[in-house]
Design a protein around this nucleic acid. Structure first.
Lengths: 343, 343
DNA sequence: CACGCAAAAGGTAGCGCTACCATTTTTTGC
DNA sequence: GCAAAAAATGGTAGCGCTACCTTTTGCGTG
């Protein structure tokens, strides 16, 4: 009668403990570290919990223990296939650990990122995985204040907040364009969309490679801030052709654009690679099965997700890796679409 | 000196209240319902919170208030483009509401789904969005016990746990195959992968349409439980051709397979649609830009995500929709790949 | 100017769990 | 066989916030 607050009506740990004939704290231990109990009590608590259908209250647990078993993941897009591979690696690596993944989507917005970071901060995750190295000063301050293991993925750079795993987009694109140069192509165009920092750095690789070969010409460049798509690849390529009809190859900022370019070539009866060589970036699954197969830069996205989680888990367990920055590199996958130019 | 437990060292609401010169409960109200404060106190609390860099403790809030502001989302795959559109709709619709999305990935595993549901149950989400209508009895029991608004998406069926928004995969595939029949194709193959329940129902639509036209022949069918991919589409199509060389059209269980089939046709110098008609399912972005453009069944995935969130939010606010099952339908996008057969 | 009423603000007591000891029981070594 | 060490178990007191209720304040009215 004197109850001040309506009970939730759900089974609590105390009820389980009572049925099992142990103290609440023993029951609590059962859920966190069953080995600490004697086999008989362990058995009793297990069956009591099952009988009552006990579901632990995570909020209470988090409040009392001052921590959670959540790893926060911040990525800029769910639509982009690149991230789905990373996520697969993340989910696979977290499987079997007690940690669950909390995913948030910044939609390429730096402000959204700040906001989501603050939300994560309020949740006190055990670890954090964030995309890229271009956080705002504000975001970086939040990250540093969060005091949990953290990995920046997709890129590598000089000043990790904590850890990093990625590769150099600039070097990768440099390698792709240098390959085209080595194959004998001269008027090599660049098609780019969604000019986020990673795409910018890829463009930097293109620019450097072209300058190194004394082939750089701003008229060969066609970019847009619009989000990437296959259709857009065709459009940009068409625009590029009208600006520079003499191009003999195109380096695409990503594979979607490359496929769009291929379709546009088919529409215009341009044969690939005889009339137009194509290289992409990321080596998504369709690149190898396209006709002709398309050259691309393979990036180790799945492995990136896996490593990030592994590093976070190790750090949570107290084993911070000795080398905080891991370069996963890339592989140039040379296929028919960049076969040497017949002289 | 008598402290039993180390304080977390973080700013608490009490500190903010003290600095603002109000009681803790008033400060609490500021964060939940600022309008309830007089303008002067509102101002004072706001600046105190800012000055101290206060971050609310969500665990404590959830424990005290017995609820969270999280909508749980359970999907079977992050790799499949179909779901990324749904997710985009979900994120867009939740934007601006106070609710945040907690995403979990079942990886097409029913057991994983059960486990994740139990995790959600422990978190007491304010609402839930789950994929499909094929939950285990166990999962369904958990769903029913959760006592929060819930939408099943992607399909519609007779017995919603709470609400549903989707369309009939069987009817959609029936329409696609009937279209091929109407165009004059007779030996229409079916290529399917990842034979989950949704794919099974699509196959049912194919079977019914073929039987209705007296064209059904089990030799025209090529399916595999292997996860879907573009490459796989080519492989399955090649297998199908060796089993039934006389086919004149293929209906593909999804668009990735359809693109794989197109590439395989290009490799074999089969012209589409003259030698081989192709239809896909979902109408992903690349279908319209392929050469030739590929016919597909457009499914309203983005809208599905949006509607699901809208319905959950309405239900949380107490306005359960009068009609719990929403059929978003589909549109047959007829393109060149299924142009009428020349007699 | 007292009165009533609504709006604003505050006091108190948990929400369900676990940290931190203290205590009891069991095992081990000689 | 006994002391010492180790393992298992229990009691108490919060974690930081909000629900519930009470008290105070502001303001129009007879």
């Amino acid at each position: 009668m004197e109850r001040k607050r309506a009970k939730s009506g759900e089974i609590r740990l105390t009820e389980v403990a009572k049925l099992a004939g142990v103290s609440p704290i023993t029951a609590s231990r059962f859920f966190r570290n069953p080995e600490a109990l004697s086999p008989s009590k362990r058995e009793r608590v297990a069956s009591a919990a099952k009988e009552l259908g006990y579901v632990p209250n995570l909020a209470a647990r988090a409040l009392a223990s001052q921590r959670t078993e959540v790893i926060g993941v911040l990525i800029p897009s769910l639509t982009n296939n690149v991230f789905s591979d990373v996520l697969r690696g993340i989910y696979d690596a977290s499987e079997g650990s007690r940690y669950s993944i909390q995913l948030a989507n910044t939609r390429y917005s730096i402000l959204q990122e700040e906001q989501l970071l603050r939300l994560f901060q309020a949740q006190k995750p055990a670890g954090l995985i964030v995309t890229g190295i271009d956080q705002t000063a504000e975001s970086r301050a939040v990250l540093e204040a969060m005091n949990c293991p953290m990995v920046q993925i997709m890129e590598i750079g000089p000043a990790p907040v904590d850890m990093m795993v990625g590769f150099s987009h600039q070097d990768a694109e440099f390698a792709a364009v240098s390959h085209l140069v080595a194959q004998g192509f001269q008027r090599i165009g660049f098609v780019g969309a969604q000019m986020d920092p990673r795409m910018q750095r890829r463009f930097g690789g293109y620019r450097d490679a072209m300058k190194a070969a004394a082939l750089f010409d701003p008229r060969l460049i066609m970019t847009t801030p619009v989000p990437t798509s296959i259709t857009l690849g065709g459009t940009l390529f068409a625009d590029l052709l009208s600006k520079a009809p003499d191009i003999d190859a195109v380096s695409c900022g990503n594979d979607d654009l490359a496929l769009g370019v291929l379709f546009e070539c088919q529409r215009r009866q341009l044969s690939v690679p005889e009339d137009m060589a194509i290289v992409g970036f990321n080596d998504l699954e369709f690149m190898a099965s396209a006709v002709p197969p398309l050259t691309s830069v393979r990036t180790n996205r799945y492995e990136m997700g896996r490593s990030a989680v592994t590093m976070v888990l190790a750090a949570i367990a107290g084993n911070h890796p000795p080398e905080p920055v891991v370069d996963l590199g890339f592989q140039l996958m040379i296929r028919e679409s960049s076969s040497p130019r017949r002289a």
